[in-house]
């Protein structure tokens, strides 16, 4: 097939960029561990209230400046819905849903993951700036979807 010289240059440049880009993405994923939230733990969605750690949702101290935050998500609320976190804390957030699919997002941070019945999802973040943060649901879950919210206060 005849390919024009300029098109060869254009494609070589494009494919070169693509390889560099995918390498950067791959290295940061597999060598630096920057993976999207992909927890593989399953749970019975109808027994969330009696399955640890979701039987006692909330913030749990795990070590020096290390915390676990377990949140139960259901239409149309987050439990607990008012959380205080010390500044600089490294927090692993675990979430699961008791009913339909929800989203878990904290605007202004990179905290964003899907919450699906039957699965625990999880990510780790550090709260460096004090202030009020909003948790909201960003996956449509029914009539009260846009009312679903909770607060995090990061304190000194």
């Amino acid at each position: 097939m005849h390919i024009h010289k300029y098109e060869k240059i254009w494609l070589a440049f494009g494919i070169g960029c693509l390889i560099v880009f995918l390498t950067v993405v791959g290295v940061s994923a597999f060598a630096a561990g920057q993976q999207p939230p992909s927890c593989l733990t399953t749970i019975d969605p109808e027994k969330v209230d009696s399955t640890p750690p979701f039987d006692h949702p909330g913030l749990v101290k795990k070590g020096d400046k290390e915390y676990e935050l377990n949140i139960v998500v259901a239409a149309f609320s987050f439990t607990p819905n008012a959380i205080e976190i010390p500044k600089g804390a490294k927090v692993t957030i675990n979430v699961t849903s008791k009913d339909v699919i929800h989203g878990f997002e904290i605007p202004g941070t990179n905290v964003n993951m899907m919450v699906e019945p039957g699965y625990v999802n999880s990510l780790t973040t550090t709260f460096d700036k004090p202030g009020e943060y909003t948790i909201l649901c960003n996956e449509y879950c029914g009539a009260g979807h846009h009312m679903m919210t909770a607060r995090i206060k990061v304190v000194e």
Partner: peptide
């Protein structure tokens, strides 16, 4: 980019400063 969710009716999320 400021975090506003899609597929959501108008809401201030309890007067959240972000919203």
């Amino acid at each position: 980019l400021l975090g506003a969710p899609r597929r959501s009716a108008f809401s201030t999320y309890g007067n959240s400063p972000q919203a």
